[in-house]
């Protein structure tokens, strides 16, 4: 009985916070656009009884999904989002791993302070931080002024409103999500393992590849998913830092909702995005599970 209750609680939680909103969104995605409040039809009217229910379901269809396949904008946006997410994840890993490694190898008394520094940016609003990047990357921004002043460049660089700015923004924003799991796995590692590897004939470098890398694999996988999953649907960063050519599905979704007020198509976009994300989310869960088993 106790066991049952223990299982029930998370399922109820999932039902309330995930399944119910999902069903609502899914229903809207099957509706048609209407000049009304809310801006779609049909709406369920239980007062009409059985007949009302039947006509309600009759009016639902997959038109919006068909529409998504017909306009190239959508699948291009999905693909472009995937691409940006993959590249950003790799970049975040390349930046984050050395930082995590350095933190894990730092003297023990420094580590809490270093962890603090990683988490510190979360104390200010995400939006403000992205705006700050606009100030840094703009044509007359801090970065260009500095580079012009040092004489490295003679013409200001165009970074803001390009994909490069989006990558910078994403790497900056999601770096802590990459660093923390990698740091956790590296910090747990016993340093005598590296000594043992060297003792058995490894160079420092091969000891890294044969011992450190495999032992931090779980952290790398976890960190990569934590960056990849939210990045696909990212909206703020491409809107503020990206240019007209930056195509991301989050931006498309926003435009459908707020510019076109086409809730049904926007909902369809969201449902497809969710389906795309389910695969990495399941993989992520598997990885966490495996890690727990390996430790148990």
């Amino acid at each position: 009985m106790r066991r049952f209750a223990l299982i029930l609680v998370p399922y109820l939680w999932l039902l309330a916070l995930f399944l119910v909103p999902f069903v609502i969104v899914f229903k809207i995605s099957l509706s048609d656009l209407a000049m009304a409040i809310p801006p779609y039809t049909p709406t369920l009217d239980l007062a009409e009884g059985w007949a009302g229910l039947v006509s309600f379901f009759r009016e639902l269809d997959f038109e919006n999904y068909v529409w998504l396949t017909e306009d190239a904008l959508y699948w291009k946006a999905y693909l472009s989002s995937l691409q940006i997410a993959v590249i950003s994840t790799v970049l975040t890993l390349l930046v984050g791993y050395p930082i995590a490694y350095g933190m894990a190898r730092a003297p023990e008394e420094w580590r809490p302070m270093l962890l603090m520094l990683v988490i510190l940016p979360f104390w200010t609003s995400f939006l403000i931080r992205v705006y700050a990047w606009m100030g840094i990357l703009a044509k007359e921004g801090v970065l260009n002024q500095f580079l012009l002043w040092t004489g490295v460049i003679s013409e200001p660089l165009v970074i803001l409103n390009t994909n490069l700015a989006v990558y910078i923004g994403i790497v900056y924003t999601y770096l802590p999500f990459m660093i923390l799991p990698i740091y956790a796995s590296l910090e747990r590692m016993d340093e005598s393992l590296l000594e043992a590897a060297e003792d058995l004939g490894c160079s420092r470098l091969s000891a890294f590849w044969l011992v450190t890398a495999p032992l931090s694999k779980q952290g790398v996988i976890a960190g990569s998913f934590l960056v990849f999953i939210p990045t696909i649907g990212e909206f703020v960063i491409p809107s503020l830092l990206g240019g007209s050519k930056t195509l991301m599905i989050g931006k498309v979704l926003w435009d459908e909702f707020f510019a076109n007020r086409d809730w049904p198509v926007a909902s369809a976009v969201a449902v497809i995005l969710l389906l795309i994300l389910i695969v990495p989310i399941i993989l992520f869960q598997r990885n966490q599970q495996k890690q727990r088993e390996a430790e148990g």
């Binding site: 016993d190 393992l193 000594e195 043992a196 003792d199 011992v211």
Partner: peptide, 20 residues
């Protein structure tokens, strides 16, 4: 001479087995 070039092998008190 670095450890990996010494004709010496050590058994560690903590064993230091590779967990993976």
């Amino acid at each position: 001479v670095p450890p990996n070039q010494r004709a010496v092998n050590m058994m560690f008190q903590s064993y230091a087995l590779f967990p993976h």
